[in-house]
Amino acid sequence: MWSNLQRWRGVALVATALVATVWLAASNQLVLYIHPRYIVFTVIMAGIALVLVVAGLLARRGHRDDEDAPPARLPRLLSFLGLAIAAVIAITMVALPPATLTSATADQRSINSTTVGAQAQNVDTVASSPAGAFAKFTVVDWASLLRQTNDLAFYSGKPVDVVGFITVDPDDPDNVFYVSRFVVTCCAVDAQPVGIPVYYPNWTSTFKAGDWVEATGGFTANRSTTSAQGIALEPANVLAVEQPSEPYLY
């Protein structure tokens, strides 16, 4: 029993994780966990590993592991416990529906606590962009501009149309929320929440934190008295939408 468990636990865990990975890749949901640039590599390695798993299951054993005497009771117990924990993760990988990070993590990591990454928009280039360009701007683009300038004249005549999930502005939880997205560099672990403030009095009567919305409108001076944000989106419209298939931005 001990020796069989020692030998096959890795194959069982890897096989379960690989099935989950391939399933996610096939249903286009791998992006919930890793950056798209890793998808090809991940799928190739999963394929190779699956071949090795099958070969391992079909191969005769090279040497008997029960040459090693089973360890004392305590280490054995710890080993079982560790394996049980690992098994729980493996099982949830397959059994639970895949999910994006929630607004709990956005709150915990403090929205806009870091500047937006390398692909951020530059104020000087944007100032001369044609009006049509702004339709494609994401939460990240606007957040990077908001960090660079608070000049209201810069934002006038620039229509905003963004999709994101709602996180609460802790300074004015009733009237201001952020339309936010996670920015991912490698995998969900490093996701940084980025958002733009929206002034929407009594928004909690219509939405709740974590809801996905599409907000349109333009930036004006923030009418909230307690929010720390000088500029906020004055929404012409806020619509509940489905979570996009690629919830993270890169």
């Binding site: 690989l18 989950a20 991940t42 390695m45 999963a46 990988m93 999910a99 993590t105």
Partner: peptide, 30 residues
């Protein structure tokens, strides 16, 4: 079906580490 947010995020983060690292571990084993 949905889990409480923090538990869900714990699982999402852990699974994300596994999915991200496993290909590199396999490459290392190869």
């Amino acid at each position: 079906f949905s889990l409480p947010n923090q538990l869900q995020d714990l699982l999402t983060l852990s699974i994300s580490v596994v999915i991200e690292s496993l290909p590199f571990v396999i490459l290392g084993i190869l």
